[in-house]
């Protein structure tokens, strides 16, 4: 099996005469934390949709977890996890029911679910809240739980779409701890964020501007290239060039 979890070559998506994603090429290695940055409307969401098998590219090639995005999108979906700030868990189900439901979708056996639920709840210090409704949990806990649910079926790759928006700084760091652990266990993490300090926590970062990937390197490399002291500065230097404003 290849060590590349994502291989994209000139991946392009056009809507009419609007090119949302303009021939992007990049690779993501197994176990890597890959930061996917870009201003609003730069094409991040469209690119993520193509990579997660939700949207057909217009042209170009890409494989995700070894599967082709054109022909094997159902297999892709089975081998990835997804979590966003907006959509995560069912508020009116309990913690345990949410885990059961999502694990069930991925066809995991009852014994696997039962065993792993115990481990996950313990890790999150949620054992006491297993039968509480999700809506009674604080936001930070919900986000951590949502992440654990997204990787419960042990996917090769997990997409995180602004997972820490609005979360307090302490919980935000606890969340990143979970990301590190997942990456250490071999799960590749593909993450978008508006917090520039979080970009520093990634192994490599790509920055999209107007549908293209304008920069891709380690945070240290980017700062060197753009002669900047922080990722914030790198981002501003790149994103200020953007001409397009539409979402």
């Amino acid at each position: 099996m290849s060590d590349k979890v994502i291989i994209a070559e000139k991946l392009t998506k056009r809507f009419g005469d609007f090119t949302a994603v303009d021939a992007i090429s990049f690779e993501v290695n197994r176990g890597e934390i890959f930061g996917f940055l870009g201003a609003n409307g730069a094409g991040k969401t469209t690119a993520m949709r193509m990579l997660s098998g939700l949207s057909m590219p217009t042209s170009g090639k890409a494989t995700v977890a070894g599967f082709d995005v054109y022909r094997e999108n159902e297999k892709i979906k089975r081998n990835i996890g997804y979590m966003s700030q907006k959509f995560s868990l069912y508020e009116d189900l309990t913690v345990r029911e949410n885990i059961r439901f999502y694990a069930g979708i991925y066809g995991k056996s009852s014994s696997f679910i039962r065993e792993k639920t115990g481990i996950v709840l313990k890790e999150l210090h949620l054992s006491g809240e297993a039968d509480k409704l999700v809506k009674s949990l604080p936001l930070g806990w919900k986000q951590k739980l949502a992440f654990s649910v997204a990787i419960f079926h042990e996917p090769r790759l997990v997409f995180l779409d602004e997972p820490t928006g609005g979360v307090d700084p302490v919980t935000r760091r606890e969340f990143w701890n979970l990301i590190y652990e997942a990456a250490a266990s071999g799960i590749t993490v593909f993450v978008t964020t508006h917090y520039m300090d979080e970009a520093e926590y990634c192994n490599r970062v790509s920055i999209m501007v107007d549908g293209r990937i304008d920069a891709l390197d380690t945070p240290g490399g980017l700062k060197k290239t753009f002669n900047a002291v922080s990722m914030d500065e790198v981002f501003l230097k790149l994103a200020r060039k953007a001409v397009r404003t539409a979402d």
């Binding site: 201003a39 914030d232 501003l236 953007a242």
Partner: peptide, 10 residues
């Protein structure tokens, strides 16, 4: 500024 990118926030 929630959900708005760094440039627009500035």
């Amino acid at each position: 500024t929630t959900g708005v990118d760094a440039v627009s926030r500035k």
